[in-house]
Write a protein that binds this DNA or RNA. Structure first.
Length: 455
DNA sequence: TAACAGTCAATATC
DNA sequence: GATATTGACTGTTA
């Protein structure tokens, strides 16, 4: 299918009022009237069902760069203005649970940091925003749900079926297997504040602790190693997301102020530098950073904490994770350095745990580490570069090729693409390079004569 | 294979 | 009751 064709059908799709969001109460997403053409992906609830053969995945792939922050902002507005809940929205429109929706709305990742799958909810949101009847439909859903609930409640009261779980409306329990035993469920681990504190301290010293360190931490805190591992994974990724938000917010503020305040600068640079500052040198180190603790851990931290964010750092996080910003602005009298800092003093075990983490650090990597952060940012850029280059075809180039049509399709006057190219000279350069490559390819194709490539 | 992205779902908080 | 937080899990990636 030619791109113009698909765009056309997409446009129609988006413009036509969404088919009734048949959120079947059984929790199963409404099956598209015609099965998604040969799409291996499992069907997900999609208010677009019933449209052409285009699956959400295709839409995502064709989508221009979306302003995830702006989208979530608008969605939040619409939801609150109309008193619509996240649960309803999530289950009906996105096919996600309430918690995921909350998280997504509160901390959207920038488009270029998202995998195809991660982009999906944003495309859905955008489409939903574009649907003139979006609120109405959701309201209807709400009413229906309420009705069903009342009905059920009424009947269960009269029938006195005691064991009926009060799950409202949707039972989207996977499969219909009669819950064998809720006893089988593992109780949720809840970390005590001191444990968290200890882990944070350990993180400050070594964002990528070695198995040995993890083991020690787990022992000292009396946790399972898997818990400690999970905690580090979660913490790293959540801190990273916090940073994105900070950057975005700083960016939007900075824009107002126009000039070159550090924050404005950094935020402007951020998205682009994600890709660029790493080009070359840093990139070479790449993933090795994962082991970086062995070779000077902080680098690893920087990798994920991200350099470019410099000025845009959450105050809270600022004291928690080592990051470049601190380098630029050395804390007065070593303040933030958690390890040495006057922060809350964890309980002995926790303190010991943190100490253990520190101790496990190879030579010279002491608490100062956190005060002398790491190797900077480029790394985060690495990540960004990485991903953005992994998926560019879906964003920049695609948009470049048919910007207007796709953007109008998604109704995106403010699509981030424009901002990006404006912000990022390097990206421009790359785009230019790409264009030139394409141009030469085209030429080659038409001429069929050998060409000397130099990229 | 480790790190990660994305998500669920239990729990906490408002 | 709605929303936010967070430990755990699954699948993907390099």
């Amino acid at each position: 299918m030619s791109s113009s064709e698909s765009v056309k059908s997409l446009t129609e799709l988006v413009q036509q009022p969404c088919p009734p969001i048949e959120t079947s109460k059984d929790g199963k997403p409404p099956e598209p009237s015609d099965p998604p053409a040969s799409d291996s992906q499992p069907a997900t609830p999609l208010p677009l069902s019933g449209h052409s053969a285009l699956s959400i995945q295709e839409l995502v792939a064709m989508s221009p760069e979306l302003d995830t922050y702006g989208i979530t902002k608008r969605v939040k507005e619409v939801l609150t203005d109309n008193n619509l809940g996240q649960r309803l929205f999530g289950e009906t429109i996105l096919g996600l649970t309430q918690g995921s929706v909350s998280d997504l709305l509160a901390r959207p990742k920038p488009w270029h940091k998202l995998s195809l799958k991660g982009r999906e909810p944003f495309v859905r949101m955008q489409l939903w925003l574009n649907d003139p009847n979006n609120v109405e439909k959701l309201m209807d859903m709400k009413r229906m749900e309420k009705k069903a609930y009342m009905k059920r409640r009424h009947s269960s009261v009269s029938d006195s079926q005691p064991c009926e779980p009060p799950s409202v409306g949707i039972d989207y329990s996977q499969g219909a297997s009669p819950q064998p035993q809720h006893q089988l469920k593992k109780p949720r681990v809840v970390l005590a504040p001191e444990e968290k504190e200890a882990l944070k301290r350990a993180y400050q010293q070594k964002p990528y602790p070695s198995p040995k360190t993890i083991e020690e931490l787990a022992t000292q805190l009396n946790l399972k190693t898997s818990t400690v591992i999970n905690w580090f994974h979660n913490y790293r990724s959540r801190i990273r997301r916090e940073l994105f938000i900070e950057e975005i917010q700083a960016g939007s503020q900075g824009q107002a102020g126009a000039s070159d305040s550090p924050s404005a600068r950094s935020s402007r640079a951020a998205p682009s530098s994600e890709g660029d500052s790493c080009d070359g040198v840093e990139a070479a180190e790449g993933p090795g950073a994962a082991d970086a603790e062995e070779s000077g851990g902080p680098a690893a931290a920087a990798k994920s904490q991200g350099g470019p964010a410099e000025a845009a750092v959450a105050p809270e996080e600022r004291e928690e994770a080592p990051r470049p910003a601190e380098k630029a602005q050395p804390p007065p009298s070593g303040a933030p350095g958690p390890a040495d800092g006057p922060g809350p003093v964890p309980n002995p075990a926790a303190a010991a745990a943190a100490a253990a983490a520190a101790a496990a650090t190879p030579a010279g990597e002491d608490a100062a580490t956190s005060a002398a952060p790491p190797a900077e940012g480029p790394c985060r850029a690495r990540d960004g570069a990485h991903r953005s280059s992994a998926l560019p075809s879906t964003s920049a180039p695609a948009a470049a090729r048919r910007p207007s049509s796709l953007q109008s399709l998604f109704g995106l006057p403010e699509a981030a693409g424009a901002r990006d190219s404006r912000d990022n000279p390097l990206r421009k350069k790359k785009a230019a390079n790409l264009n030139s490559i394409i141009h030469r390819l085209e030429k080659a194709a038409s001429r069929e004569e050998p060409i000397e490539w130099e990229f």
